[in-house]
Simulated assay, not measured.
Amino acid sequence: MIDKLINEGKNLESEAKEGLGLKYFSSVEFEKWTTQSIFYLEQYFGNSAVTDKAKERFKTLNNNNNYSFYQFLLGSLEAAKEIKKDQEDNYTYSID
Results as ranks from 00 to 15, higher is better:
3 D>I: 04
3 D>G: 13
5 L>A: 00
5 L>E: 04
7 N>L: 07
7 N>R: 11
8 E>H: 05
8 E>A: 11
10 K>G: 09
12 L>N: 01
13 E>M: 15
14 S>F: 14
14 S>K: 08
14 S>D: 15
14 S>E: 12
15 E>I: 05
21 G>N: 07
23 K>H: 12
25 F>C: 00
25 F>R: 02
26 S>C: 05
27 S>M: 04
28 V>T: 08
29 E>G: 13
30 F>Y: 12
30 F>A: 08
31 E>C: 01
31 E>H: 06
32 K>D: 13
33 W>I: 06
34 T>P: 00
35 T>I: 06
37 S>Q: 07
37 S>P: 02
38 I>L: 10
41 L>E: 00
43 Q>D: 15
45 F>W: 01
46 G>R: 11
46 G>D: 00
46 G>K: 10
47 N>D: 15
48 S>C: 09
50 V>F: 07
51 T>S: 04
51 T>V: 05
51 T>A: 03
52 D>P: 01
53 K>R: 14
53 K>S: 04
53 K>W: 13
56 E>T: 07
56 E>R: 11
57 R>M: 09
57 R>C: 01
58 F>K: 14
58 F>D: 05
59 K>G: 09
60 T>K: 14
61 L>N: 07
61 L>I: 04
62 N>F: 04
62 N>E: 03
63 N>M: 07
63 N>E: 11
63 N>G: 03
64 N>K: 15
64 N>A: 06
66 N>D: 02
68 S>G: 02
69 F>A: 11
69 F>R: 02
69 F>C: 12
70 Y>M: 08
72 F>P: 00
76 S>P: 12
77 L>V: 10
79 A>F: 15
80 A>K: 03
81 K>F: 03
81 K>G: 07
82 E>R: 15
82 E>A: 08
85 K>I: 10
87 Q>E: 09
89 D>C: 07
91 Y>W: 06
96 D>R: 14
96 D>C: 12
96 D>H: 12
